[in-house]
Structure formats: C-alpha cells, structure tokens
Design a protein around this nucleic acid. Structure first.
Lengths: 341, 341
DNA sequence: CCGATTGCCGTAAACGTTTCCGATCGGCGG
DNA sequence: CCGCCGATCGGAAACGTTTACGGCAATCGG
C-alpha cells in the first residue's frame, strides 16, 4: 500500500494525497477528509525513508550514551530515567530516535559523524559521557547540533544541559547546618569531572556563607563508587576533631560512608548525618534511607530536546555559543540525615 | 557528497561505485581499491534512506520497552544492562537500532506496527513488558518478527527469550539447604506474570526434591517492590514455626525482608538467611550484601538478536512456533545468606 | 581461426515520496 | 463581456541508491 495506490483509490493524484496528509492548505476540506478516511481504512502509512530522501530531513535524532566502557558507575543508576525522559520528550516533539553505538575498534573515530550523515540525523543527544571520547570529539567539532546532558564538551553547535550541581550541594550543606551540624565534611568525585568540581564548589560556597571552617582534611576525594566512599568515611572519622556530618557527591559514596560509620560503631544519623547526590534506586532501599540531592531527570530530558531544537532551527547566522541550561535539583530528606524518620 | 560525485571523481559509473563499496564480485580489485580510497578521502557515506528505499530493507530493528507506565519496578534496575547488551549485540550483527515509543493516547493501538512499516523495520525486540499491552498485541499478532526478553506474548512470528527462572530459584533453595536450612519460605511476585510463576515453580520443585515440607503460609505473594517484601517478611516471621531462610523472587522484596528481620531484632544471616533474584545495583550496596540469582543480561541480549535473526531469515514456510530460548542464571553468594562474608 | 564464455563495466529503470510549475474553473469587479 | 484572481488539483521532476540488462573486450577450447 503506497501513495500511488491510495491516490488511485481516492480518484486523485499522488500530489493531492501528499498534500492532504501533510496538512497543506491547497486542498479542499472534502477531499482531505475522504483521503484521510481511506488512508486509515487501508492502513496506509507513508514510507519514511522515501520522505527523508526527498525532504532531506529525517525527523530523527541520534542518541549516544556510555561511550564504550561501561564503567563510570556514577551515572549508570539514573541513566535509565534519563533515557526514558529523553525518549518521551522527543516523541512529544514528533522526533524519531535512533540509538548510536560507539565502535570498539580504534580506527573508528568519526563513526558517530558518519552515522549522522548516513541517516540524515538532525541532531544528537549525548548522555553523561566523559569528555575524552575521540568519537565524540569528532562529532562535537562538526556542525551537527549536539545536546549533552551532564557532560562537558564544546563545539560549534553544542549545548550543555546539566543539573545545578553547585546549588544542589549548597542546599545539602544548608540542610545539615539547619539540623545543627557545624563540622561538615565532604567526599568529592574525581575533580577533573565537571559535575564533581561543581558540587565541591557548592559545598565550599555554602560553608563560607554559613561561616563554617573547612579544615583541609575535611575535603577528601573519591571515585563515585562504593568502596571509595567507605574509605573516605574511614579517613574522615579518624580525624581527631571528627565531622558530625558528611556530604558525599554521589550516592554510592554516601552509602559507603554510612558503612564506615557502622564499622566505627557510630549510629546514623544520630552520631553522623550523611547526605548524598543523585537519588539512585538504592538510596531508598538502604537503611537508614539516604537523604540525597535528586536530579530532575524529566526536566533534564525536556531541556535537552528543547535546546537541541533551538540549535536545529537556528539559522547559521546566530551561532553565538548556546547558553548552557541548568536544571534545578531537589533535596530529598530521609533517615540518614534527619533523626526520627 | 553523493555517489554520483564520487563516481565522477573516480572516473567510473555509479553502478561500479555501488558494487565496489558493497563488496560485489563483478568489480576488479584495482578499481575497487581506488574507489575505496577516494571514498574515505572524501568522507563519503552512503545515504541509508535511499538504500532502504530501493533495497526495501533497512537493516534496522525496533526496540520497545516499558510500555507506557513506568511502574513495574521489578525490571527497571537491570533494564539498562539489557538495553546495553541488546545494543551491542545488534551493532555486532550490523543492525541499526530505533527506539519505539508507546503512545499515551488510547486510540493509538497499532502505533508500533505503523512505525515498523513506516521505517521498514525488519523486526522488533521487546524488553520486559507486561503481556496486556494492546499496542504490543497488535504487533505480536502481525507477521513482524518479534523477540521478547523476559516477557510473555505469542504470535505468528514471535520468540521468547528469558532467564531460566525455575532453575535459578531451585539453585537458590539448594544453596540455602546446603547451608543447613530446612525451613525455607518464599515471597513471590504477582503470579500472573510468567517470571514470578516460574520462580515459584522452581522453589516448589527444589523443596520436594530435597524433601522439605512447605506449609502453605510459607508461600506469600508480593508485588516485586520493597514495601511488599517488608510486609511479607513481617508475616513470615510471625509464624510460630518461623522460617530460618527466605527466598524472595525479587531483590527489592528480599531487601524488604531483611528490613523486617531487623525490625524483629533478628540478625541476617545468623537468624535469617535471605536470597533474592535479579542482582539489581542495590544488591551489592546494602548491608549485609544481598545473595541473589543474577540474570545474564549480555546472554539475554545476544540470544534475543540471534533468535530475531532466525525469524527474519526464516522462509515463510518453516513457521513452526519458534522455540523459546532459556538463558541460565548465576547464583551470587553474598553476606545475606552465608555467615562470615 | 571461430564461437562461446568470462570478467568488467555502463545505461537506465526502479524505489515512494514531496514539491515546483502549470492548468483549469468559478467568481468577481469593471 | 473581459481579464484577473484565488482555490484546487495534476504532471513530472527530483532525492540517492541498487540492480537488471546489455555491451565490449579478452580468453579459451577445439
């Protein structure tokens, strides 16, 4: 069932059918209705490859995540939510979605760029990928519109959307302060990653604003994984003037810190309050449940497609570097910080 | 840069270029090499829409997951791993991947089927979706090749791949038996879901094989979520002749059972051993770490694309109902069952 | 030496759309 | 009545590939 067949049965030309189904004006309401009815009766669906061939646009955008190595478990937990959010946001905007795969081979740089031009993709959304991906560099350096969620790369037509890491961290510290804590330590992520650095900055800003002293040993670095949080907790709790609260830049590390407290015979939150970041699934499952700074996955998703559409529709003229979109976070207060919950 | 341009620069016809790049035999090695070199120099990439238009196949398969409502948290945790596995398996088989979206509107049944014929998709992989999805029913009833991972629906060209739920449950019970437990209870998932039913069957089979008595109150139903596991645990521990071990058909419920034990003043695993199912991320983060039956996500992924390719390549003749593919599981022994870990 | 075969390549027709360019027709003002 | 205009439609040319078909050498067997 193609457009010619449908045209024949409707007694009109293919041009008219096309116009009718695409809501063009130069068609009478009567014939439009007749064609519509016949189309749905016959189960006609236009052939997208043919459409993109002639229109030279595919209404499809590409999605890349996870860049080869699956490691970097920091993101993994909410990647799925992000993916889901992006998917629905895109389909609401009448875009199709194609998943791109980063090749394992070395010589395959430009694979993403190739995929984009092969399929006439109109843009690409990148999820939480480390910035040192060569395949991605090629893409970002090209003129392909790119929106990166929670990732850091720049390029001619690139926009970054991320959570307000600094403000989130600040809110966490503020929360601990209001609970009465004055000795608040932090365990950070790898500081070369922008989110980790921003969360540390927020922590520091809050401390100075609240007049809290931050001895250098109160700031210790982790790698976003469980074990590093446990080790960091052990270090922090061994300090003579030990902190009464810990803000961890990631939930896994926060849970690790709680383990360290348990090993030291300390009760959470009575002897030590802990706040994490991300709100991974496990945060609600551990005991005590983890207070954490939740990212707005849906918000990130819709902001990304919105920003991407901006880049796509932009005329070549106004290629001022697109402003990054910052999405607010939400503090989730649970048992690991507030007593009696 | 299209094939005509490349042909012009190579001094041959477009037919020859096409043959050269598609590894057809009727081209001399010399010209093939020249064309290859020129193509990569000029950054030529064939236009896929045009190819699919004329070849009438797209080398693309569709992926649908999560069927509208995001609920059913049972799967959520390892859905991401599954997705990743499917993606790499497909790209290894030189397929492209398109994400399908289930529409929110009611009248949009057949949306998936429409998408398939619009884009010339050659098959669809369905991830962990409840069988009562109308949009999916339409798809399964059609002649579109479908592979469903961990889901139950049948249709003319449909194949099911799932973990060996029964054997996994059996192994879990066996493990508890070997640790000396004789009073082993279970908390199941919603029994209308095939995985839940199969896990219960495995539990029962193991018990009869090992000569364990199963009082009816030892079998209690949950909904795969945390709270239901906690409630189930509370019920089980209130039994006069209370079980010393619990096999839960899902990790969240297992963790809930552990919470119930803690509330009852029981130590895990000393007073109560717990084994879960799925190996979600949180399983390794809780304390004690959760023993669980891990699903082989990668195995499920490759089996699904393999099965799907089988369906695609099958001539219309041999449409004997495809055999379901059963993927073995792996028992992960951690602190919640074995003391001293 | 001749007909048939083989290897290599070009011409052109598809594939299913969209859209430019006209054509037709009725109505309208002058 | 004439010319013009707007509304509605059809014809046909694209879009970038693949592939059936045919052609032209060179080779080969006899």
């Amino acid at each position: 069932m193609n457009i010619r067949e449908l045209a024949r049965r409707s007694g009109v030309s293919t041009a008219t059918v096309s116009r009718a189904l695409n809501d063009r004006a130069e068609v009478s309401e009567a014939t439009r209705a007749k064609i519509r009815r016949l189309a749905s009766e016959l189960g006609y669906a236009p052939n997208e490859p043919a459409r993109t061939l002639v229109r030279r646009r595919s209404d499809t955008i590409g999605l890349v995540w996870d860049s080869g190595q699956e490691a970097l478990g920091q993101h993994n937990p909410f990647l799925l939510g992000l993916l889901s959010a992006v998917r629905t946001a895109l389909s609401d905007a009448d875009y199709h979605l194609m998943l791109l795969t980063t090749p394992s081979a070395e010589d395959q740089d430009g694979a993403h760029l190739q995929a984009v031009q092969r399929h006439n993709l109109e843009g690409v959304i990148v999820l939480t990928t480390p910035p040192d991906d060569r395949c991605l560099r090629v893409l970002a350096d090209s003129t392909v519109p790119c929106a990166g969620i929670d990732t850091a790369f720049t390029g001619p037509r690139t926009v970054r959307v991320s959570s307000d890491n600094a403000a989130g961290a600040e809110a966490a510290v503020q929360h601990l302060y209001e609970l009465g804590h004055r000795r608040i330590a932090t365990v950070t992520g790898p500081l070369h990653l922008p989110p980790a650095a921003e969360r540390l900055a927020g922590y520091l800003r809050a401390c100075t604003r609240l007049g809290l002293s931050v001895p250098p040993e109160y700031v210790t670095e982790g790698d976003f994984f469980l074990a590093s949080g446990e080790a960091a907790g052990k270090r922090l709790l061994a300090i003579p003037d030990r902190p009464t609260a810990i803000f961890a830049a990631g939930d896994q590390m926060a849970i690790g810190a709680i383990h360290a407290a348990a090993d030291a015979g300390l009760a959470v939150p009575r002897d030590l309050a802990v706040v994490g970041f991300d709100d991974i699934d496990a945060a609600a499952l551990v005991r005590p449940a983890l207070s954490t700074v939740a990212q707005d996955q849906r918000g990130l998703g819709v902001a990304a497609v919105e920003a991407l559409r901006g880049l796509i529709d932009a005329t070549a003229v106004d290629t001022v570097q697109a402003q990054p979109r910052i999405i607010p976070t939400r503090l989730l207060i649970r048992g690991s910080s507030r007593p009696g919950v």
